[in-house]
Design a protein around this nucleic acid. Structure first.
Length: 497
RNA sequence: GCUUCCGUAAUGUAGUUCGGUCAAGCAUGCGAGGCUUUCACCCUCGUCACCCGGGUUCAAAUCCCGGCGGAAGCACCA
């Protein structure tokens, strides 16, 4: 079997299904998995230079792809990595052979004219009438540069009377003067996907192909070629297309553009949905793998939900993720009537694993007063996730709540920018609302990059200063977060989910 | 328009090849409860489905026909 990524950027969540399915199939039947970079040049030089949306190969993509495969644990044959760009001569030879046999011809019709005038009505174009010698001449002209880009193509003679318009005398070779990142301008006549794979799946000994249903036509074309050559056909299995929710933009080309303009910080930006970005966020490879495997080989189109990954990921990371307190959009809360001079809170790092120990958060009082930060969200109407259930009231005079693992207070007064409360008791009442807090005097700024690209700001307890980059932790009642780095203006984290 | 593929609950999937064991399994979601100084995790219980209409048959989610619905292809992209 084989993986055939196009090196225009890092692999993303949409490509991952192909990877995982192939990998799993090979493992199950003890097969071999080839990595074949499908790095033929598609667009013309003209398009690449003038059309910002043109697909093209970027040199760094080869490594980005390899990184992604490694992260996902795809077990491909690392000693036998293949580049289609090394094999162009092979396709050219086969194409010439087909022309010689009258199974292919060189067409000089304009693409639009061919489509409108001939393909749509199922009539052959005038080129097809010409002799094999003329076509061989034209073929030479393609190779030696006498023809410009788009002036001529090689079409395979599947027949203009094919029922399916998609199959009528499809192009198999075309001209591009674009420079290839690996082999430069060594070749100018490049194969189309259908043709190159018709050749390679045979030449490389591929017996089974798993690909998306959008490549169904390519399967027909390959079969046509195998028949023509008298080759043993490979088995082709298709899986359905995945649609992604929200404003998922799964385009490597677009991601590349945004990285270039600086709108995204790198391939790690969560909006690329690249495998690199998932790793950066703290998604476990197995969470992705299992979610994708759950979809099976169904050919129906599915709306993919990232929540499936999150659900699996939560189960994988929860036991490792230590708990910390973080308040998003902090507001000050002044507390009065404090009887003691010092309060110490020692919440455990993980309630299910007490043996990991506790954190220590200290709140000092002065003249029986102290201040903490709480999240603005908690001061507004709080709807429980179960919407039908508890609806915590907006903070107003008399509202009682507990600063978690500290003490219970009651709101005395509400000001635009702060709240004042009075100490009630240290005794825990099981049913009272508990909220996270951090000391006003001692805390650390934290910036969290959300999957939408928005960065939110807040304050966390000081103890997270010791958390190492790359660690996944849980901000209680907020979500899981992966520590990235310490910056001058505070700590920087990626939101996991 | 032409061609092909698909159609099981809110979402996804198992079962359809060789009709009965499927009054339909699983996961996520949702709901109830338990645990808990997190609306986390974990545990228990519950909830919702075979696109429609015919036909074949003792028996159909499974086979046949016809509808309807959805997706993909019809690029000198991959």
């Amino acid at each position: 079997m084989r993986l055939a990524p196009y090196p225009s950027g890092a692999l993303h969540i949409g490509n991952a299904r192909m990877l995982v399915l192939n990998d799993e199939y090979v493992k199950r039947y003890n097969g071999r998995l080839l990595l074949v970079y499908d790095d033929t040049i598609g667009a013309t030089k003209d398009a690449i230079e003038n059309d910002p949306n043109a697909k093209y190969i970027i040199p760094e993509a080869y490594d980005l792809i390899r990184e992604g495969l490694e992260w996902l644990g795809i077990d491909y044959d690392k000693n036998n990595v293949i580049y289609k760009s090394d094999r162009v001569k092979i396709y050219q030879n086969y194409a010439q052979d087909l022309i010689q046999k009258g199974e292919a011809y060189v067409c000089t019709c304009d693409a639009t004219v061919f489509r409108e005038k001939y393909k749509k009505v199922g009539k052959p174009c005038p080129c097809k009438e010409l002799s094999i010698d003329v076509h061989l001449d034209r073929w030479k002209n393609m190779l030696d540069g006498s023809y410009e880009e788009r002036e001529a193509v090689v079409r395979i003679n599947t027949g203009m009377d094919q029922k399916d318009p998609a199959l009528r005398d499809h192009v198999i070779m075309r001209i591009s003067d674009a420079e290839h990142p690996r082999i430069g301008t060594k070749y100018r006549v490049w194969p189309i996907l259908d043709f190159s794979w018709g050749i390679d799946d045979h030449e490389l000994g591929v017996t089974h192909i798993i690909r998306g249903a959008d490549l169904q036509k390519e399967g027909f074309m390959e079969h046509y070629i195998w028949d023509l050559m008298g080759w043993e056909p490979a088995a082709i299995l298709l899986y359905g297309r995945m649609r992604f929710s929200n404003e998922f933009i799964l385009s490597k080309t677009l991601a590349r553009q945004k990285i270039n303009t600086g709108e995204y910080e790198s391939w790690k930006d969560p909006r690329t949905w690249s495998l690199q970005s998932l790793e950066a966020r703290g998604i476990q490879p197995d969470a992705l793998r299992e979610s994708l495997l759950d979809l099976g080989m169904s050919q129906s189109g599915i709306s993919f939900s990232e929540k499936w990954i999150y659900a699996k990921n939560t189960k994988l990371i929860d036991s490792d993720a230590n708990r910390y307190w973080f308040v998003e959009d902090p507001v000050k809360l002044d507390i009065i009537n404090l009887p003691k001079e010092r309060y110490v809170s020692t919440p455990s790092l993980h309630p299910s694993y007490e043996e990991r120990g506790t954190r220590l958060i200290e709140l000092k009082t002065k003249d029986h007063k102290a201040s903490v930060y709480i999240s603005r969200l908690d001061t507004k109407i709080q709807m429980s996730r179960k919407e039908t259930k508890v609806r915590y009231p907006k903070f107003s005079e008399g509202t009682r709540f507990r600063l978690k693992d500290l003490f219970t207070v009651e709101i005395q007064s509400v000001h635009p920018k702060k709240f004042e409360a009075r100490f009630l008791t240290e005794k825990v009442e099981p049913s009272i609302r508990k909220i996270q807090w951090v000391p006003y005097e001692s805390n650390v700024k934290v910036h969290v990059l959300k999957p939408t690209g928005v960065i939110t700001h807040g304050k966390a307890e000081n103890t997270i200063k010791t958390v190492k980059p790359g660690t996944i932790m849980q901000f209680e009642r907020y979500g899981y977060v992966k520590m990235q780095k310490s910056q001058k203006n505070g700590l920087y984290c990626y939101f996991t989910h």
